[in-house]
Simulated scan of single mutants.
Amino acid sequence: MKKEKILSNLEEIKVFTDPFRMKILFALDEAPMTVKQLADMLGEIPSKVHYHVKELERIGVLEIVDKKEKSGIVEKYYYPTAESFRVEKIIMKEEGWQEHIGNLKDTAFRNASEDYRDYLSKKKDDDKEIFNYGVIHLTDEEFDELRKKIEELLEKSDKRKDTKAYTYVMGLFKKYN
């Protein structure tokens, strides 16, 4: 698996930012799965999941990482091709890119909300969490410094034996009164 895949055209962004496809990507966080396993996990019919998996595979976001024969049927196991996905800056000059990035942000917040509700329903006394909402006052230089520190922390993050997965949502944007 690569560290990062760059989405380099508007078609890739359109495919990637579909809310259901984002759910598929989040579901594949821990281990490769078949279309049937994904469908069961997401409570959907396999044909719907298969269509969306094939679209993600077509743009190089998912790949087949294993095949197993079971009762004469070949099961294909899918997994993301990279740990993170980034939009190439040149795309931002193409017409329509903002709508799709907006869809991606909306989907991320919706998925994070669902994850948080799920977490609250299963929360144990010793679970760790950070939840913060507010306004922070920064100079442009402090903003850039904070972004750099967050990016460095995220780059260090990878799956290791002694780590736990945490959902995170971060957004820092100018507040207009």
Rank of each mutant, 00 (worst) to 15 (best):
G43F: 05
E44Y: 10
S47V: 13
S47K: 11
K48Y: 11
K48I: 04
K48S: 06
V49R: 08
V49N: 03
V49Y: 13
V49I: 13
V49C: 02
V49S: 09
H50L: 13
H50Q: 12
Y51H: 04
Y51R: 05
Y51G: 02
H52K: 05
H52T: 00
V53R: 11
K54D: 01
E57P: 05
R58K: 15
I59M: 10
I59W: 06
G60I: 08
G60R: 12
G60F: 12
G60V: 08
V61H: 04
V61I: 14
L62I: 09
L62Q: 01
E63V: 00
I64C: 04
V65R: 08
V65C: 05
V65D: 03
V65N: 00
V65H: 04
D66R: 15
D66C: 06
D66E: 14
K67G: 06
K67C: 09
K68E: 15
K68G: 06
K70D: 06
K70Q: 05
S71F: 13
S71K: 15
I73C: 00
I73A: 02
I73Q: 08
I73N: 09
E75V: 00
E75Y: 07
K76L: 12
K76P: 04
Y77V: 03
Y77Q: 01
Y77F: 15
Y78T: 01
P80K: 02
A82S: 10
E83H: 09
E83T: 03
S84R: 12
S84I: 01
F85S: 08
R86Y: 01
V87R: 02
V87A: 14
V87P: 07
V87S: 01
V87L: 15
E88Q: 11
E88Y: 10
E88M: 14
K89Y: 12
K89I: 14
I91R: 00
I91Y: 03
I91P: 00
M92Y: 15
M92R: 15
E94M: 03
E94I: 02
E95Q: 08
E95F: 12
E95K: 10
E95W: 09
G96H: 04
Q98V: 09
Q98R: 13
Q98I: 11
Q98M: 11
E99L: 14
H100I: 01
H100G: 05
H100A: 07
I101A: 08
I101H: 02
I101F: 12
G102S: 13
G102W: 07
N103G: 12
L104Y: 11
K105Q: 13
K105H: 10
T107N: 11
A108R: 06
A108N: 14
F109W: 14
R110D: 15
R110H: 12
N111A: 06
N111C: 06
N111R: 11
N111W: 01
A112W: 04
A112Q: 03
S113Y: 14
E114W: 08
D115A: 14
D118S: 13
D118F: 10
Y119E: 00
Y119D: 02
Y119R: 02
Y119S: 03
L120C: 14
S121F: 01
S121I: 02
K122F: 00
K122M: 07
K123Q: 07
K124Y: 00
D126G: 00
D126W: 05
D126R: 03
D126Q: 06
D127R: 04
K128G: 04
I130R: 03
I130Q: 00
